[in-house]
């Protein structure tokens, strides 16, 4: 049970501090997150060039709460032994960690799709990357406006 005093303590922890305020406290935050994103991206694609297209990332443009944002990824592919999607990766730019989910699939999936729900700490861009069976990488990005940060704790309306 949260008493008022506990609530104030709670509100004072860094968790409850919105991204903008946190960025002021730590000027390197934005740069660090960007570097982490680049590193995660490199871990997936190496030095291969990522092309735009073939991937459709569907995210609501504006959401009620960053704790659970539904999205889907659909990749254009015949999904045959000769030509299929090997993997789908989803990354964020401003979450504490860039990785969201990585999926492995085969022609037996029939369609290259994924639907799930992500936590978004802030208004930001989400990127989906597909790796094809020929080794090429394709991607799509979408911007989401988060009105209420996922970091709010109980005790706040």
């Amino acid at each position: 049970m949260t008493t008022r005093r506990e609530f104030l303590v709670l509100a004072a922890t860094s968790l409850a501090v919105p991204e903008a305020a946190r960025a002021q406290l730590d000027p390197n935050l934005a740069a660090n997150r960007k570097a982490a994103f680049q590193e995660a991206l490199h871990g997936i694609v190496g030095d291969t060039q990522v092309r735009r297209g073939r991937v459709k990332l569907q995210l609501p443009p504006l959401i009620d709460n960053g704790n659970s944002v539904p999205f889907s990824v659909v990749v254009e592919s015949p999904m045959t032994e000769a030509d299929y999607v090997r993997a789908i990766h989803v990354l964020t730019e401003k979450n504490p960690l860039p990785d969201v989910v990585s999926v492995r699939l085969s022609p037996r999936a029939g369609r290259a799709t994924l639907s799930t729900r992500v936590r978004l700490a802030d208004t930001q861009t989400v990127t989906a990357i597909a790796q094809m069976s020929d080794g090429s990488f394709w991607s799509d990005s979408a911007e989401v406006v988060v009105t209420l940060s996922a970091c709010l704790e109980e005790g706040l309306i």
Partner: peptide, 24 residues
């Protein structure tokens, strides 16, 4: 017995995870 779909999840996946996909 044959793996047809696999997902590696990270902390950014929402509580009570939903995963939806297809298979032949």
């Amino acid at each position: 017995g044959v793996e047809v779909y696999r997902a590696d999840l990270h902390p950014a996946i929402a509580a009570n995870p939903l995963i939806s996909f297809t298979t032949v």
